[in-house]
Amino acid sequence: MDVDRLHRRRRRWKERLMTVLIYLSVLVALLPLFSILIYVAIKGIGALNWDFFVRLPGPVGDPHAGMANAIVGTLELLLVAAAVGLPIGILAGIYLAEFGGHGLFSNSVRFLADVLSGVPSIVIGIFAYALMVLPVKHFSGWSGGVALGIMMIPVVTRTTEELIRMVPRSLREAGLALGVPRWRVTVSIVLRTAAGGLTTGAMLALARVAGETAPLLFTAFGNRYWHRSLNEPVAALTLQIYQYAISAFEDWQRQAWGAAFVLIIMVLILNILARLGTRSKFSTQQE
């Protein structure tokens, strides 16, 4: 009797202890998140002013130094990345969903897309360097954009495939029954139905590569001045943060926080927009 009660009490205590530990683990994981967001916000906003957005980087101590070229550079690199990653990813995703089935070819494409998404970003950087920098012997914005685009491809492909597969069969059948050719059914009905989700996927993929630094180190390389074209080394916010963060100058470190704030806002906006998009898509789909 007594042993039994002791045993029961021990089990109850263990239950409580584990519950507390699990709650704690959530707190422990979120602590760094809040710390990062708060530091970036406080130190970042403190470093921002009008000059930051319209002026070029300056020497240490220059009160009017900015990162206009890096902001523009990041946007241009993302544009190139989207131009590379979205068409390839979406069309490949369409193929996998509409014609793919589970044959050898489609399964290898799926497997290799997964492989590609697991490749460390710095290795993608080496690849883009070998492909586009080495032959012309100079760094370029193009190579950086392509490196980011390659990183987008697997994400976009798998998202597209999944979304297209979620389009109800009845919609397709309705189109086919009306005598619409198959490719028109895919383009006008299936893709249009999945459009919201595709936008979400595209934005998440862009958000993911917007913060990448490693693939740009040997491709876009960074630039302290305006680039005249994407055929030259191009500045990017991430590269600038890296360079300034590891510098020995307090002034540059301060600007690194400013750039981090701008970058994180960009990434967060893309993420939140994407999530809002998902929510409305699902709510309409359930009707």
Binding site: A210, G211, E212, T213, I241, A245, N271
Partner: peptide, 19 residues
């Protein structure tokens, strides 16, 4: 939790160095 995955790694580095 997923936001933690969205933060760019260079910002982790920056926060790492100074915090």
């Amino acid at each position: 939790v997923e936001l933690l995955a969205a933060i760019p790694s260079v910002i982790y580095g920056l926060w790492g160095i100074f915090v």
